[in-house]
């Protein structure tokens, strides 16, 4: 009984998100059992395809916790990918060095945005919108064409490395043994997820994010450095976004101006479905993780069906978003009433 009492609205929301994912996935398994949906690899592919998004969403969650938003992430990814692609193909640079540079660029990018939001107290939406235009513009300045990466052996090797799982192997109908695998970006993304989770729970910075989002005025009064916390949040978001960009580039092995268009919205919707409030102060990366999985599952379901227009996944996400924000506001109402 006591443990039941401890479940508050926010934990319940998280549970609903997880339950929804499980139900959705099982439904997929039942409906599309003949199309291989039941195989472990289908799930792993969702992870592989969304590793970049997961990194970005972790950063987005941190920013949203402060009550802010970062819509520059999509174009920052495009810029990162283009930078790596052109760096390898045209400038013959070392891919590892390029990746490090991308992280540095991300940090500087985030610092500028964070400074504007934290110290100059400009609306995060408008600041990161400027960042968004800058990133997309810069991508085109680097190169206007699509660039495929093929000349660096090291890069191709990293991108194509399969990490095989020690379990879940099966033989397909042609009699070939299929070993489930993930790729390096998945490992990176999961490590990011765990680190951010621990950071949010166990560091002063993590808790400060919640405090700032809960009540900025109070955070100041309690002696927290609000401006610095915000600056750090945006730096974190941009750095995680750049890590996401690296994952993205490893997945697509190319750079183009139109890459990752609208990704910021996927990240925001994943975070919201995962229980992060746009008003700040409430949320968790575990929820965001499941938000990403739900997003991924929806598009996989639509693809597996084969007959549906891919736009249906947008409509499904729209419906889900609606469902979750209504749920959140209903919970908030109930909470207010019960006082």
């Amino acid at each position: 009984m006591k443990s039941l009492k401890k479940i508050n609205g926010n934990t319940l929301l998280l549970l609903i998100t997880i339950a929804l994912f499980v139900v959705m996935y099982i439904a997929g398994c039942v409906v599309y059992s003949t199309k291989g949906f039941t195989h472990l690899q289908t799930f792993l592919n969702i992870l592989i395809n969304n590793a970049g998004l997961l990194c970005v969403t972790c950063g987005m969650t941190c920013v949203m916790l402060t009550g802010g938003i970062d819509i520059s992430v999509g174009s920052l990814i495009a810029m990162d990918c283009m930078f790596i692609a052109v760096g390898i193909e045209k400038w013959n640079m070392n891919p590892i060095l390029l990746m490090v540079l991308v992280l540095v660029i991300g940090a500087v990018f985030g610092m500028v945005q964070g400074f504007c939001v934290g110290y100059l107290k400009i609306q995060p939406f408008i600041v990161t919108m400027a960042g968004m235009f800058f990133g997309r513009g810069m991508t085109a300045v680097i190169c206007t064409e699509q660039v495929s990466v093929s000349s660096s052996e090291l890069f191709v090797k990293i991108a194509q490395t399969k990490i095989e799982l020690p379990f879940g192997a099966y033989t397909n109908n042609k009699g070939v043994l299929q070993v489930p695998y993930v790729r390096i970006p998945v490992v990176i993304a999961l490590v990011v997820l765990i680190i951010v989770f621990l950071m949010l729970k166990y560091t002063k910075f993590g808790r400060s994010l919640y405090a700032v989002g809960g009540s900025e005025q109070s955070a100041v009064m309690m002696g927290l450095d609000v401006a610095k916390t915000k600056l750090k949040a945006y730096v974190l978001s941009s750095v995680l976004c750049s890590i996401g960009g690296i994952c993205f580039c490893l997945n697509t092995m190319s750079g183009s101006v139109q890459q990752a268009t609208g990704l910021e919205m996927d990240a925001i919707s994943s975070a919201v479905i995962g229980g992060t409030l746009l008003t700040g102060g409430v949320g968790n990366v575990i929820g965001s993780f499941f938000g990403v999985l739900i997003n991924g599952t929806i598009s996989t379901l639509v693809k597996t069906n084969g007959k549906l227009l891919s736009s249906w996944s947008n409509i499904a996400v729209a419906a889900l978003l609606c469902f979750f924000i209504i749920l959140q506001s209903v919970f908030a109402k109930i909470k207010e009433k019960s006082k």
């Binding site: 919640y210 009540s215 009064m221 102060g281």
Partner: peptide, 8 residues
Amino acid sequence: EVNLCPNL
């Protein structure tokens, strides 16, 4: 006015 964070 209570200056604490309601969400923590």
